[in-house]
Amino acid sequence: MKVGIIGATGYTGQELVRLLQNHPEIELAYLGSSSNSGAVYEEMFPQFSGLSSSLDAGSGPGLGTGKLDDEQVPDLDVLFCALPHGLTAGRTAQWLNRGIKVIDLGADFRLKDGAVYEAWYKVQHPAQELLPEAVYGLPELYRDKIAGKTLVANPGCYPTATLLALAPLLRKGLLQKDGLIIDAKSGVSGAGRGVALGNHFSEVNENFKAYGVASHRHTPEIEQQLTEAAGAELLVNFTPHLVPMIRGILATIYAQVTPGVTEADLKACWQEQYEEEEFMHILPEGIWPQTKFALGSNHSFLQLKIDPRTGRAILVSALDNLVKGASGQAVQNMNLICGLPENMGLKMRGLWP
């Protein structure tokens, strides 16, 4: 299959290139960038030396132009879009009409209500008519809805870590819907490759801070999917934190259990949901998730405990924000919509040390 990436110079774009180079059914035919038009990819990223010779002749030895016109994209089977919000949706209909399947790693198709998108992202949605066509791409929860689709909204990294822990338990009514608290930490790569003072080494190193308090844009995405799982509208307190490391997300979630529910009930629910899932791991008693378990891989790790004093469940979820939280999950979705084995190109385990 011929595959292309727009936004190929960002962290998620680079991660897609790395993963797709190991995919046996893929020809990486096009790389595009909105900010590095005409650059030679392997000169920017020497770890991909030799890549240019495999690119489609229409894209030349370097990146596609920064205009992102439909005509710039050659005929492809799948196009990954790793762009900031607002830059993908307005062009998507043209690609779909050409028979190109689109996987959006940005935020343009994650929210089903255009008004909610506009409220949180402060821009008008450029293609609201496509929102009903987009499927939310979290395979472990929505596999049957994803298979065979042509437009996939790849979830955000924080929502992925949160939903994998919470959604099955809410579906079964094992947790109360009120008072959900999500305390999550991410490595600096989650902020993207753009230049910002708060991401400079001297600002981040030996520092630990909350950001986006009561205002982070992943909040409505989390609430939308948890509302669907619970069958009733709910709200969450979501607070992200920046950790002085490059990769990884660790989410610690607090939820009141439904009266009579035990720790064994919660774990049995997870086990039922994930026992056949290659990328999901419910850890043995006493072993708690660490970001390094998942480093460089598409694997996720879960553990929980009920505090007997408060009756509150404590759920911990860990993953690599650039792989399962973004590009690895996008490849997983590509495999699903194209009828390939879901684990193809994703069999690597975490790096340690």
Rank of each mutant, 00 (worst) to 15 (best):
F80C: 08
L28K: 04
Q128L: 11
P284V: 15
T291W: 00
F201W: 13
K292R: 13
A115W: 04
E203K: 12
G60I: 04
S34M: 10
Q47T: 09
R193A: 13
A318N: 04
A255E: 06
D265K: 04
L164S: 05
G7K: 01
P132H: 12
P259S: 07
V135Y: 01
K292H: 14
T310E: 12
V78C: 05
M348W: 07
S49K: 12
Q332G: 03
V236N: 01
E203H: 10
N237T: 14
L141A: 07
Q290F: 07
P46H: 03
G156M: 05
Q256A: 14
L141Q: 04
D307N: 15
P289K: 02
N207Q: 13
E221S: 01
V123F: 15
V116M: 15
W288K: 13
P61R: 08
I282S: 03
G311R: 09
S49A: 15
T258H: 05
A268F: 12
A93K: 09
P46D: 11
K67P: 00
N199D: 07
L302E: 05
I182M: 01
E272C: 09
A184C: 08
I246Q: 05
R217T: 12
V188N: 02
P353M: 03
C269I: 07
T227M: 10
L83D: 03
A153S: 10
G345E: 00
A255D: 06
K177G: 09
Q21F: 08
L138C: 11
W270I: 04
L76N: 01
Q14M: 12
A119E: 13
P24R: 13
G192I: 05
F293C: 04
E277M: 13
E15Q: 14
Y136F: 15
W120R: 09
P168A: 15
I306F: 10
E129A: 14
P132Q: 14
E206V: 15
L76E: 01
A268T: 14
K67M: 11
V3Q: 01
E275C: 10
S300G: 10
T65W: 13
P139D: 10
E15Y: 01
V78D: 01
G248V: 03
L111V: 09
G260K: 08
Y11M: 02
V78H: 06
G4K: 03
L295R: 05
G90D: 02
Q224K: 03
Q72W: 07
P289V: 01
T162L: 07
E223C: 08
E118N: 07
R18M: 04
M348A: 15
S317W: 08
R349N: 14
R143Q: 09
D69Y: 10
E221L: 04
G192R: 02
R18T: 05
G60Q: 06
C338F: 06
H23V: 10
P341D: 15
I337K: 00
R193S: 10
L16G: 02
T88H: 06
P259D: 13
A57E: 15
A232P: 02
G64H: 02
I182D: 00
L19W: 04
E228R: 09
I287M: 12
L295A: 09
Y30H: 09
N154F: 09
L266G: 00
G38T: 08
L340D: 00
E129C: 07
